[in-house]
Design a protein around this nucleic acid. Sequence first.
DNA 1: CAATGCGCACAGG
DNA 2: CCTGTGCGCATTG
Length: 417
Amino acid sequence: MSESKYREWILDTIDSLRSRKARPDLERICRMVRRRHGSEPERTCAELEKLIQEQTVLKVNYKGSISYRNAAKVQRRSRKKDDVSLATAARRSAMEEASHSDLSNGDSAFGAVDQDEEDLEGDTSMAMDTDSNPDEEGAEESRDGQDRPSPSPACEDATVQCAPVQAVSAPCSPSGSRPSSGPHCSSGSALDCAASQKAGERPNSLPPSSPRALTHNELAYDSAVSPVEGQHPGMQRDKVESKPEDHSGATSPCASTIGKKEAESRVEDSSLSPDQLVPDSIARPDEVRNVSDGRLLKVSLPPENCTFKKINTPFTAAEGGLLNGSAGDEVSVKMEKMNHNLLQWTVADVASYFSAAGFPEQAVAFRTQEIDGKSLLLMQRSDVLTGLSIRLGPALKIYERHVKVLQRTHFLECEDI
DNA sequence: CAATGCGCACAGG
DNA sequence: CCTGTGCGCATTG
């Protein structure tokens, strides 16, 4: 309860600050929430972080300072008129797309899914700053409470980084992790992170070759991309590249496409976040840092923390394997894991998944309906199309490309076993 | 004084 | 050109 309440408060606050033309930063958000609802800043802060992890709220570095965005709004700003005229057009297109995907063929080559997602989510470009200025608070006083599990474990599998989706941010502990936060909140974390990040410790992020990355505001791409990235110096990217085979290239544009462009594509993918997402990795540098070089570690993470992993896998496996048909052994292995995990997905995991898949608004509906992994497996087409009260277009995509795929994969998996 | 309102310069498309 | 953003200053309660 309180969670959704907070979500509403925070999103409201962000919207309100935006309409007032004031930067929705941590300080203002906390203050407004406190004023309006009496919640203490710490709590607000903790809830905000959760929302960031779920991507309900996007943390971005804009013009040198951190801002928070309502993901539902940011995400598809390009076509806002949809609502209006959407009746037909959207519908129609949705249908078309859906059908296509259904057949799949098309996808394989390029991963229709991804593409779509890119569209949707693509605009979240992230940017970190190159030289940000520490303006507001550079507080970094407390970072004691970092014991909480968070880093994404899964990260090890950064696997499919390609999927734009995931790249977006680092999901680590959706709900699983309790907000243990106390006072430390991350006040420091948020801000400070940004700072630190820019500071430079980007291990390897992209070589300079990626001017693109910096192109616009300032990309924090590396960080944004994923905590993982930051952590494995060098690895991630390699991994990404190599991994593609797993996906059989179906999905990841990066992989399959042209060799040369790999770099570029990667960059693009990663940068898909719209403004300048500041992933939470930033937010919790501590943890990350611990591990810093070398491997990442994960402290204690319950299964749920692995959202990432779960997310990734499904994508890969599903698309690569099912759609494409050419799954590798590795894939299958992953699939298994993934499926098992599916049963363990919590409501928050499901929501995070859809959020990451480019449907943040719809993710809320899943959460509202309390759909967890098991429920997801039981969902039928009509449930998705009408039971969630979400728009038909996204609903079709969600069902055809995600729900159905996950279910199919899961059951196939079961049969095998 | 905090909360708001908003003109205007900026950046990206 | 259009849109989104948010600084800086004016206004309000």
